[in-house]
Nucleic acid binder design. Structure first.
Lengths: 341, 341
DNA sequence: CTGTTAGCGCGTTCAT
DNA sequence: ATGAACGCGCTAACAG
């Protein structure tokens, strides 16, 4: 019994296929495939015939059929919490750019817009060869399932687990340096603002904060556990204004937090860094526009995204999983909110 | 001749398939498909058997095979220039969120990272049911090809063309209102900063600028054609400082431009709005942190992205193409850079 | 409620 | 240099 393709006499109005192109060009589908993939040598005249047929029919190959045949999706998945603020956007840009170089499509999943994260990841796994997830964005159960199914997974800004690679930017040492810088301005009541439990990166930043204190024989205060959003920063600043905390320096877990804290304090008449020093993390655009300029730490975010995409590709290509995290260096950006002139 | 699936005796180590699951559960592949899709009724006991087999094997369905069978990718493509700045990121978030609601994956292409845009779009078309492109991001030739292939296309912040829908935010009237507001502060030498030829949206904003002048019997100056980036704003500000332009008000094509112009001028000792008023467009985060606060126009960017995703879905579902653009309202955000207290 | 089977459109030997 | 035929894994009739 022959395939319907070769039997069916009537033309199908919906979408040209490799069959219709072949028929129109008067060749076999194998030849069409060859000219389109550019793999084997095809006579120039037949080549032209095929190309013309493709053009006339407006033929667009069906990726799913190709994927099924070649047994590869030629796509990478990326799971991010959201895209507000420049951090994730930049990460995504780096990821996309590298994926493009490697001829991989990128399928994006934003977890904040999902009610059922597990389902989203499961669904994603269905259409990509490998997945990069940010931090603790994916539930471990689903990740394990992927591993069981032999889909490469890399964690961005997280920690390596069994069979799960990690790529990250340096946190601990830079945080130690930043906190040390603040302490060396003579500040003695520094507070860390942000929740160390919200992710390995924040945890390491707090660890650096503690280390800087240790280095100087000082004792670090407990972290002020607030979420990393503007609103949370403003709320904390209000607490500060009402005397609920005592501090002459604030090391915020990221810039969004730092900026909102800083401007809230300023609007209430406090001076920065006079009354209180404020530093952040990420070096977002706003940080160089505000006065005083926000002292912060710049991460190679773009490069981090690119690295994740590269590793995904390598893993799909059969490279072994690296057991230790790849860490990219960060850079202290000193402006004046820390007390520097 | 039976399929290899049923013949092959040796287990394939690479990836579980619906066949291996069926075998393990002691049922047919149809039953496996049924419990996984939840379409038909399946006896609870068999259902459990299947689910257990799925779990034990770590079965992840092959999306490509499903797509081929159901003749749908269940994915939308989105073509954006880049993601720096909040505008595109917010658009993407809106798009992704709506797509998720509609159970569609989103495949992202960023054109700024591509050398061969046409190839990227062609490739994208291969794996999605419909594509949304921002403004003039895609070459018309490739778009036409898609239309020929009956793939729905919607343009975001662009103009409808034959068979191509457009979704956009209102520009002309809001620009007229904004420019009018500035003129009503008594400014008489207002300049429009930005290139009207860089896209339909900027063109309309300039048209609004002109209209506001006309409304008052004034003559609008020619636009100062600069690109929409921070660096270009700073360069323009330098020209201004060197007396190459004469102006007491600047209506910038977007906030990034406005912010960089404003701070460059301020750093050189000029006062805003005292010496010169500056207004922007987009209401990015920074605009409410700078002093004076930047007067600008807020667009429903998130909603715009969502609308694009919705329309894509509708078009895929067979709804007819709308010939006139769907326009979302914008909102004037008055702060103090325009001269208001 | 469950199993059989025919495609979905493409890449890919294997002949020629 | 080109064509014929098979299989990739899944859904959807159609039987039973």
């Amino acid at each position: 019994m022959a395939k319907q393709h070769q039997v069916s006499p009537e033309a199908k109005p919906a979408g040209a296929t490799i069959y219709s192109v072949a028929e129109r060009a008067g060749v076999s589908i194998a030849t069409v495939s060859r000219v389109l993939q550019g793999v084997a040598v095809v006579a120039e005249t037949t080549r032209q015939k095929v190309l013309r047929a493709v053009d006339e029919l407006g033929y667009v190959p069906l990726g799913a059929a190709r994927s099924l045949a070649v047994r590869h999706h030629e796509a990478h998945g990326l799971v991010l919490p959201e895209l507000s603020g420049p951090y994730y956007a930049e990460l995504l840009m780096g990821f996309e750019a590298r994926a493009a170089e490697l001829a991989q499509s990128v399928v994006l999943v934003l977890t904040n817009s999902r009610t059922d994260l597990a389902a989203a990841v499961r669904q994603l796994a269905t259409r990509v060869d490998a997945i990069a997830v940010f931090g603790a964005a994916a539930t471990s159960h689903d990740v394990l399932r992927l591993l069981h199914a032999k889909k490469p997974v890399v964690v961005i800004a997280g920690e390596p687990r069994d069979q799960v690679e990690a790529v990250t930017a340096e946190n601990l040492e830079s945080a130690r340096e930043l906190a040390g810088h603040v302490l060396d301005h003579g500040r003695r009541r520094a507070l860390f603002v942000g929740d160390p439990d919200s992710g390995p990166d924040i945890r390491d930043r707090y660890a650096g904060f503690v280390a800087a204190h240790d280095d100087r024989g000082l004792t670090a205060a407990e972290p002020v556990r607030v979420a990393l959003r503007e609103a949370d920063g403003a709320a904390f600043a209000q607490e500060l204004l009402q005397g609920e905390h005592e501090a002459d320096a604030l090391m915020c877990a990221n810039d969004e937090l730092a900026l909102s804290v800083m401007t809230t304090l300023q609007d209430a008449g406090r001076t920065v860094p006079g009354d209180i020093a404020v530093v952040g993390w990420d070096d977002v655009m706003t940080s160089r526009y505000v006065r005083p300029g926000l002292t912060t730490v710049r991460q190679p975010v773009h490069e981090l995204g690119a690295l994740a995409a590269s590793r995904l590709h390598d893993l799909v290509s059969g490279e072994p999983v690296r057991t230790n995290a790849q860490t990219l260096p960060t850079q202290l950006v000193v402006r004046s909110s820390c007390g520097c002139p």
